[in-house]
Computed example of a mutant assay.
Amino acid sequence: MRASRPTPDFVAYPEVRSGVRALLAGRTGADRRPVPACPEWTVADLVDHLVTIADRVLERHGGTPPAARPVTVPELLDHWDDVGDELDRRLAAAGGRSGEVMVMDAYTHELDLRAALGVSPPVEHAAWAPSFEVLVRGFSGSVAGRGLPSLRLRTTGGSEWTAGAGRPAATVTAPAHELYRALAGRRSPAQLTELAWSAAPGPWLPAFTWGPFSPPPSAGV
């Protein structure tokens, strides 16, 4: 595996929170907008999910979320910041890596929100590296668990990871954002096939279904 050292969760998580808040600032009615990457959700549902996960992780780290449950998106964002501030402190005390799945989930949904609002993905983001590491580990387990030859994952920027065990039998190359969305179940089988593969991609396509992720039947965003 070759990649930069991931940013600690207590640094990455605040950037996701501020990013989501900035995306929704001044967007009247955005709370009712559908989120194509999460077909059953509106923007309000997405934000509610982020808050729910933060509450659960805070409780797991010994904290107590505020008793009052927010309803509107502005209330949810304020609640998320309140819980997040305490989470940041607890994650720092725990060594900075214990919230990595939460950060991955939150960053993935920030990208979902950007797509729903027609906003380009960020050029740089503190949550990208730690989130990508989580996705690579999950995908790697899927490759190995299915008895598939290992696969080299390569970004067009030159970063590389090996998914599975042993010497890679093939390489798939894509821009960093596309590779991230592929590993996070946001690219259809047709879109996965269209990535730059050094061998026929068929054997590895089932491995993109793992954990909570499954490629959508039609083109994802």
Rank of each mutant, 00 (worst) to 15 (best):
R2D: 10
R2Q: 13
P6E: 10
T7K: 03
P8Q: 11
D9E: 10
F10C: 11
Y13N: 07
Y13K: 11
P14D: 07
R17D: 09
S18K: 11
G19A: 08
V20M: 12
V20N: 11
A22E: 14
L23K: 05
A25K: 14
G26H: 08
T28C: 05
R32H: 13
P34T: 08
V35W: 00
P36F: 12
A37N: 08
A37Y: 03
T42V: 00
T42E: 13
A44R: 14
D45F: 02
D48M: 04
H49N: 01
L50E: 11
L50W: 05
A54Y: 00
R60A: 14
R60E: 15
G62Q: 00
G62F: 07
G63S: 10
T64P: 02
A67Y: 01
A67D: 14
R69W: 08
P70K: 07
V71G: 04
V73G: 03
P74W: 13
L76F: 02
D81Y: 00
D82M: 06
V83N: 00
D85I: 08
E86W: 03
E86Y: 07
R89F: 06
R90W: 05
R90A: 00
A94T: 03
G95E: 09
G96K: 01
G96H: 03
S98E: 15
G99L: 08
M102D: 07
M102E: 10
M104E: 11
M104K: 00
D105H: 03
H109L: 02
E110W: 09
D112L: 03
L113C: 01
G118S: 04
G118R: 02
V119D: 02
S120F: 05
S120L: 03
P121K: 00
P122W: 01
E124R: 00
H125L: 09
H125Y: 04
A126H: 10
A127M: 07
A127S: 10
A129I: 01
P130M: 04
S131W: 04
F132D: 02
E133L: 08
V136I: 02
S142K: 09
V143L: 02
G145H: 06
R146I: 07
G147P: 13
L148Q: 12
P149T: 07
P149Y: 10
P149V: 12
L151T: 06
L151S: 14
R154Y: 08
T155P: 10
G158D: 11
E160I: 09
E160Q: 15
W161G: 04
T162G: 09
G166H: 09
A169T: 06
A169N: 09
A170N: 09
V172T: 09
V172F: 05
T173A: 11
P175W: 10
E178P: 00
Y180F: 15
Y180N: 07
R181Y: 05
R181C: 03
L183M: 04
R187C: 14
S188E: 15
Q191H: 06
E194T: 14
E194N: 13
A196V: 12
W197K: 11
S198G: 03
G202H: 10
G202F: 06
P203N: 07
L205Q: 08
P206L: 12
F208K: 12
F208Y: 15
T209R: 14
P212Y: 09
P215W: 14
P216W: 13
P217H: 11
A219G: 05
G220P: 05
V221E: 14
